[in-house]
Design a protein around this nucleic acid. Structure first.
Lengths: 245, 245
DNA sequence: ACCGCCCTTGCGGGAACCCGCAGATTCGCG
DNA sequence: CGCGAATCTGCGGGTTCCCGCAAGGGCGGT
């Protein structure tokens, strides 16, 4: 680490936030002499590749290409890149997405936009000069709740949840995930029960019948287990799988 | 309209954007002597009621209570309130939501956060002092595409799209919307075709079977026809309908 | 080895879904 | 009023979904 020279790349689509970040970065890191800026994920990848920047702070949830996608390709090319994710929300979909792509040993951070200036500056220094991970408290809580058993989803359940969200049939899922048809259905039932999606249990009305499959998707959406970015990513993967075989 | 006295309420959850709005409002409206601020929809409603503010600028997409919900109750109480919606996106779900609740004759605006300072100031003056509607170009385009026939959804189709998103069965929908079971299914087919959701048409593979119902929901989501806020609202309506009978 | 425990897989059936077909109803227009 | 076009509705059947039941197959423990 060369203390006299540092380049930082900011990837953020909101102008005001970009300006704010620029200020905070140069205030927190006097050794930083160059700041590059991108306003979407695609541009961010290009700049990161062009300048080989080892320090990136970026938003998740951008228009052209979201932060997770961008981070994934950047980390594939240079796994030692240090990335601070700077996000509005701590949705489980985001947290899961990030922790799925971080190379082991890499330093990264995840702080919310609502945190104070001090915490942001601290995070910047911790990650970029101390090479140390910084995860916001709320995000940390989400991580634990997510990977523990408590209403938490195993990786394979999560995959299948995506599959039904994409509109795949049981049989298609069984082919894709190499399971028997019945196993897929078993997993679906686990998913339904973990999401607390069931037919109106003791109800008298026969109106309120639910299509569990469809309901599970929106319940997952409302619980922030799924979000827009995750859907897009899953859709892309599905398409390439359909081509692949 | 008293030119020497004006109160404006800003409803916006993002601190930076709130500060920016504050500046722009006082720059564009010298006659404005008081600015109230709220950081979510619920607080916005309270302040609007307390101060009887006739001029509001607010974000859609906030945590506690989104802009559309807040605007709806505010307009129910005082239909002549002037509201400028200031949003990141021109999703069809938002546009549709707004134009569904605006009282006829009321002045309102819809501008994107990405527009220039000048346009924002202009919109503020147009709505608040000239009492004139201002709709951003991109939003306007969305409106027309939405209400025209071109891949546009009729109101009843839109309702049913929500219903299947919520996981209702065909029969439940038919009860709720007072249609025969078969009619519901007809509408579903229209929806599928408008969303271009169909079984892999010329494909040889039998793997790629789709559950049209589930797929339609996420396609609608990816096309921004549905979004998180719309789902929450629909869910609330569904719950109250279930109670009601 | 024996015994639970958990996960997988198959079978079967009742319900729900997707949809082609055809008669009935509605609505607009000359 | 007549006529066409669009929509609503019922019927039927092929497929998919939801799920209870039960027969295996690993795996750790006493």
């Amino acid at each position: 680490m060369n203390a006299a020279h540092m380049e930082v790349l900011i990837v953020e689509d909101d102008l005001l936030h970009r300006i704010y970040l620029r200020e905070q970065v140069s205030a927190a890191l006097p050794e930083c002499d160059t700041i590059f800026e991108a306003e979407n994920g695609a541009q961010g990848e290009t700049l990161a590749r062009a300048h080989r920047t080892a320090h990136i702070v970026m938003d998740l949830q951008m228009n052209a290409r979201n932060g997770i996608e961008a981070a994934r390709t950047i980390w594939l090319e240079r796994p030692d890149t240090r990335i601070l994710f700077w996000s509005n929300y701590a949705d489980e979909a985001y947290v899961r997405g990030v922790s799925r792509i971080v190379p082991n040993g890499a330093a990264y951070g995840y702080v919310l936009k609502s945190t104070s200036e001090e915490r942001l500056k601290l995070a910047l220094r911790s990650i970029f000069v101390e090479n140390q991970c910084v995860i916001d408290n709320e995000v940390r809580g989400m991580q634990q709740r997510s990977f523990a058993q408590a209403s938490g989803f195993s990786e394979s359940e999560y995959e299948i949840l995506m599959d039904i969200a994409l509109g795949m049939t049981d049989r298609a899922i069984s082919k894709r995930r190499h399971l028997s048809l019945r196993s897929v259905q078993n997993r679906l039932q686990q998913i339904y029960s973990k999401l607390e999606v069931h037919q109106p249990p003791e109800t008298l009305r026969e109106d309120g019948a639910f299509n569990l499959r469809a309901r599970a998707v929106t319940v997952a959406m409302m619980r922030k287990l799924l979000n827009y970015g995750a859907l897009e990513k899953a859709e892309a993967e599905l398409q390439s799988w359909l081509k692949g075989s």
